[in-house]
Amino acid sequence: MKKIKRYLKIYWKLIKFSATLETTYRMSFLLEIIVEVGYFVVTVMGMKVLFWNIKTMAGWNLYEIMVLYGLNMIFAEIVLGVAFIFNLRGLPEKIANGELDLILIKPLNSQFMVSLWRPYFALIPSMLAGVIMMVFGFKLGNLVFNWLSLFPFMIIFGCGLVVAYSVGMMVVTLSMWLVQATPLPMLAQKFLFMAKEPFSIYGGAWRFVFLVILPLAFMVSFPTQVLLGELVWWWIPMGLVMAVVFLKMSNVFWNFALKSYSSASS
């Protein structure tokens, strides 16, 4: 408990530092808003075009898909903002130029440090855009929102975030052996963006793959279904197991990779 309190205290400091820095660079906030408005328009138009020809996609109507894509925006921005943009994305470089030394020398969990050192707040407008899209979906489609679904939603969505981060972490950890592996974080992100499809579009063996091996289902699809009033009994226990297993795997893999760290000469 004392350990958790200590880490929370440190993380709170890091959040404050990053927020201070963010305000120094107001332009990135503005740019982020412009990009998001564009992305928002393109996504909505894409959905409109798709649903001109079909009524439902794997059982999802236009408005449900809007909720799904809105949640996907929030999901992606959390993963990117918390762990990727300023952290995991820069890890291959830190490994190549030996800057990882400064992290490993500190009496803190090194995975915590490489993953969460610098949160990025300029993505908050994008998350708001996601919320707006979800609200539109609910309103326009006359979908029923039940406040009680928020609790199971939070658990499954949280598990999905942990799984997504862990997968990303494992992919980026490979850069320990592939020095100068700057494309790795992009590859990890690409994986995560596959999460935006509804799970019901997958059939046969793919269902197993995206449920167990790369559990994309828990990232956006299942949480959206919970918000839309559908909850299968095993989602929560399985989500929790997946989150714990994947986080542990990423930790074991990271610690194993550290043995191969060769630093850089001074």
């Binding site: 400091k13 201070t20 001074s266």
Partner: peptide
């Protein structure tokens, strides 16, 4: 790790855009 320190003349741990005192406070917590 709490009892050692490594200073490398060519690498810096200070937060570049913040006053140095902020890094000291962070290290105090760490």
């Amino acid at each position: 790790l709490k009892q050692i320190s490594l200073v490398m003349g060519q690498k810096n741990q200070l937060w570049w855009d913040l006053p140095a005192i902020e890094t000291f406070v962070l290290n105090k917590e760490i």
